[in-house]
Write a protein that binds this DNA or RNA. Structure first.
Lengths: 361, 361
DNA sequence: GTGAAAGCGCTAACAA
DNA sequence: TTGTTAGCGCTTTCAC
């Protein structure tokens, strides 16, 4: 059931079988064929543990995610996976599972056990202790999305991305723009939300525009959060545009509020730090009886598939490509390559149907 | 850097150190403390490969997904992960990566390498060869969602679930109901889509209703696919309800078609085999100028978060719980438990705002 | 082109 | 309660 059996059956030595199985060139072709055939017949299954012990390489890399069910993480994970698969590496998933996930234990217990040859961290900012712990493992590490001190990083420049969005809105003539962002709902320590908010503020300033505090909202980086933020911005009556929500939270205001929705003090554009939130804001706007982009323009960041279908303007990035890049980089390092700095990932404005010239221009 | 160092420093034997590190009760408390302290100081990191080799247990389970970026798989994966984490097991992700994913190689190369103690298969139907291959590894296996011959399965009864949906629609008075389902976009060999279609057909028959062939559409189990299916059903003009789509595929018909959209031969209700598709159908209906549920009722299956926000009627299931159940079951088997049959997972009707009495009733 | 022998770092009888 | 002695299944010098 191991390499030994094959050796016995073929009358070869363990070492030759080992070499043959790996197709080494020092082995006669006929021997390789024979060994492979016998291995098949015996139903031989190699043991990665044994190979790993002997070589010190596990042929696996770990991917650490704050939470698993977010568009960006899923896509990036897919990219990492694709590249690992190509290289014949396995992927070990370490899900911190949000705030309730016992982050410390997870870190210690598993990630360090030499089960993997390298680590890809998704959008994580590590604290001192965590960094120290991970250092122990001495394997290559890289971060996707959100720069972490002392570690290589692949991802877009979030400040620039936010700037692109603001520039687009301003070029259309918007001056009253709201921002929906916020800390990731999972409450993990992630830098991206703050960078985007800063980028928004900087760009607004660069255009000589003021940021209104009450127009900077928390959308929890989720669809539902976007809807909530939109409600705050536009009011809510659920009369039009979207299906009424059964058991909607927050008492519905009626007629009076309705009228005010179109006249009330509100932004002409909303910039959201993610497409999921932007989708929610669009829905809230429609529910409030507002026309998008006639009454209000909305845009996001990401390039989410739903946004494409719906016609959402966005600054698109490619998390799958980022995942691939990260995987390749870290694999190269495992193979003894020297870690070279990575360029920021590309992002580009995709103008679709949710942004337009503000009414009255 | 290994257990040996600690032994040397403490003056203990390797075995005692090993036992102490694992906190075995046969070791003196003081010894345990001492060993742990020294281990910390030395920055000791255990080797799971070595432990695995010695014990024959890897303390890891593999999860095989057809593709990774689908709501159900992500949720189920999260559930499996949570339970594994609790038990101190690692999770190795095997992503078949859709039709282009070189399914065979992936199967052979990795899943069998004794890297994991058990396998959780998501919605996969295996062919003969695959089954045979996996048998070689001789480890416990379980399937989530979609029964596979000869393997234990956790998931809802898809035929029943479809029946619940049809019953709901019929109880409202619908007789003209369309079905949007189809093979999973990834083209993997999955049973669920067919079971749901069968369930739909059976239930319709039970209500004495005919299934119209031209109202059985392929929505590719995706949001975009749902929109496309909705277009076929309702026509498309993009004038209302949804944001117009930049570069929409399929030439837009204008005024004439528009008028016909409200009068044309169309179903009064659409049952979708997933919430993502249902969301797309709702959007298409709104774009076609139809009121939901006034002109047409729409419902799905799953319990997707977006559906909750939007008010989508659905038959909700809990993939996270299914993942947990599967993980627990397979872990129990790893621990020598006897595999007992699992009851179907619960699913229940959630009536929200997208279904109602057909007009004229 | 192939074989013999020595580990990789840990666990698990079996003794003491 | 702790130490001794064998391995777990593979890779890898070093010989031949």
């Amino acid at each position: 059931m191991g390499i030994q059996e094959i050796a016995t059956v073929t009358g070869l030595s363990k070492s030759t079988v080992s070499r043959a199985l790996r197709g080494m060139s020092t082995v006669a072709d006929t021997t390789i064929d024979q060994v492979r055939r016998v291995a098949d017949e015996l139903g031989y299954v190699p043991s990665s543990a044994a190979a790993g012990l002997a070589t010190g390489r596990q042929r696996a890399v770990g991917v650490v995610v704050p939470v698993i069910d977010r568009w960006f993480y899923v896509k990036a994970l897919g990219g990492v996976d694709a590249e690992l698969r190509r290289a014949g590496y396995d992927l070990v998933l370490y899900n911190l599972g949000g705030p309730g996930g016992d982050r410390d234990r997870a870190f210690r217990r598993s990630m360090l056990r030499h089960r993997v040859d390298a680590l890809v961290l998704l959008s994580l900012v590590l604290d001192e202790t965590e960094r120290a712990e991970l250092e122990l493992a001495r394997h290559p590490m890289i971060v996707i999305g959100g720069p972490a001190a002392g570690l290589r990083n692949v991802g877009v420049d979030d400040v620039v991305v936010a700037g692109i969005a603001v520039d687009h809105l301003c070029s259309l003539g918007h001056r009253d723009v709201a921002y929906v962002g916020g800390q990731d709902e999972a409450g993990m320590n992630v830098a991206v939300p703050w960078l985007r908010r800063d980028g928004f503020a900087d760009a607004m300033a660069a255009h000589g525009l003021a940021v209104r505090e009450d127009w900077v909202l928390d959308g929890r980086f989720s669809f539902a959060g976007g809807v909530d933020a939109g409600r705050v911005l536009f009011g809510d009556d659920g009369a039009r545009g979207g299906i009424r929500r059964a058991g909607a939270r927050g008492g519905s205001r009626s007629a009076g509020a309705r009228a005010s929705a179109s006249t009330r003090d509100r932004p002409t554009a909303v910039f959201c730090a993610s497409d999921e939130m932007a989708l929610g804001v669009v829905l809230a706007a429609q529910r409030a009886g507002l026309d998008v982009p006639g009454d209000v323009s909305v845009m996001g960041i990401d390039g989410h598939e739903y946004g494409e279908v719906v016609g959402l303007t966005t600054v698109a990035q490619d998390p799958v490509a980022q995942g691939r890049t990260a995987a390749r980089a870290v694999l190269a390092e495992v193979d003894g390559g020297v870690p070279e700095p990575l360029a920021p990932a590309p992002a580009h404005l995709v103008v679709r149907a949710t942004t337009g010239v503000p009414r009255g221009r």
